[in-house]
Design a protein around this nucleic acid. Structure first.
Lengths: 238, 238
DNA sequence: AGACCAAATATGGTCAGACCATACATCGCC
DNA sequence: GGCGATGTATGGTCTGACCATATTTGGTCT
């Protein structure tokens, strides 16, 4: 019993039973720094070599920590030199969520049904919020027009996403909007297939217009019902 | 801006500039392998040195990819030897979401209000699902009893979390349950402070029992209303 | 003076190799 | 057969080197 020199538990989210790794310590320190210095989107972190020296760890540990932050959509790294180079703080929670969903779907620890149900929940709620606040109508109308002029399924779906994202953003909640974006990203292929299968988009557009009108008239219940009907039409097997 | 929908190798975080880094290629290959071999939770990935040789990249690139997968809650690395060693596939989406929320709150790109509203949305929806299916009552009852016997605010909140998670899990949707868990993790300190501030937990327990009764009677609307009232009592400033 | 091109430089990206810490596997002694 | 010493495979970490890229700098030509 000579090896009793375990460093105490310090990290914010200590892994179960594992010793605190260097990159986790780095993560905690960077998080402290963000909090303490009040850093926000657009600010830069010191370079990797500089951080390694300051925190007394190898550069590889710094890089692993930055990779985590990049995965979580909080930093973006750019090589080169100048004001735009280095690790810049960003805010892109959506891409992180997209990866999360895709991987868990791949592992079969999440089903398409669950994804679709979540989408229905968020979209109904968002539409209700939009109906009450009366926001987002402009973006929805623009997307509606673009869908009318779409050349093919891919283009139609592109603007369809814009329509539904306009609803999500009209809720004024960046978290639900980010989750919605991830859900749509994951469902993208599904959406294209659905449009191709239906062949005709007039029914879809009628659904969209029903949603739009309900939001415009401030009728949250009607908006929720219209969305439920729409999703049921597009994804009947689920 | 959002039309950068280039599938490519299926990278998780699209590089801001151009080139795909080695670890992103590794990520894509591991993802392919999971899909192709039908790997699921519990299965192991090859060792880091082995993967490096197979994919013709340095070990550090392998490690960065594994760090990403670990961040997303799909692998867990363990040193040593034997069946439990190496990178094992897991499914822990909640912890990934917790980190995501905490960092974005730190960056002020997300507000407590948005977090609370999202929680209200999910919890109302989950309670509705639970009321319709009649599941989760046992876990809720157990948590209720435990809260009655709680010694202090910390212990009370611990079982309070169990109560609300029982609702979230009763929905049968692992995605909303995972999001709910992350939201609760982030709100933990808030919850303890609220209990301390209120001083008395009888009102909270009355709320909980109202929710429980509504779910037991299959009244989704009453359950949603009870939850709204409860959250409004606990977090009035939001 | 201005425009333009070449070298210097700072930054992330990558690799190879070495070493440590850990925990199971194996073998040999009792 | 039991049990401890040794072997070994695995992740964790550091160092140092080199590559790729983009800005900065400075010199040259017009």
């Amino acid at each position: 019993m000579t090896a009793d020199d375990r460093p105490g538990p310090g990290a914010l989210t200590p892994p179960r039973g594992t010793r605190t790794r260097a990159f986790e310590e780095v993560l905690a320190r960077i998080e402290e720094r963000i909090e303490a210095d009040g850093l926000t989107v657009g600010d830069r972190l010191p370079g990797e070599r500089r951080l390694a020296e300051e925190l007394q760890v190898g550069r590889s540990s710094i890089r692993e920590a930055l990779r985590v932050l990049e995965t979580l959509g909080v930093v973006s790294s750019q090589a080169g030199r100048g004001p735009d180079a280095g690790a810049v703080l960003i805010s892109r929670p959506g891409s992180a969520l997209t990866g999360l969903l895709r991987l868990h779907l791949g592992l079969a620890t999440l089903s398409m049904r669950e994804v679709m149900d979540t989408r229905l929940m968020i979209e109904q709620w968002s539409a209700g919020q939009a109906a009450r606040s009366g926001t987002g109508l402009e973006g929805m109308a623009r997307a509606l027009a673009a869908m009318d002029g779409a050349a093919g399924p891919d283009e139609f779906v592109e603007h369809d996403i814009a329509f539904h994202m306009a609803i999500a953003e009209a809720s004024g909640n960046r978290l639900t909007a980010a989750i919605m974006q991830a859900l749509r990203d994951v469902l993208h292929r599904f959406a294209v297939d659905a449009v191709v299968r239906l062949g005709d988009t007039t029914a879809l557009q009628a659904d969209h217009r029903r949603v739009y009108e309900a939001v415009r008239e401030g009728d949250a219940d009607a908006a929720a019902a219209a969305i439920a009907g729409h999703l049921d039409r597009v994804y009947p097997p689920l």
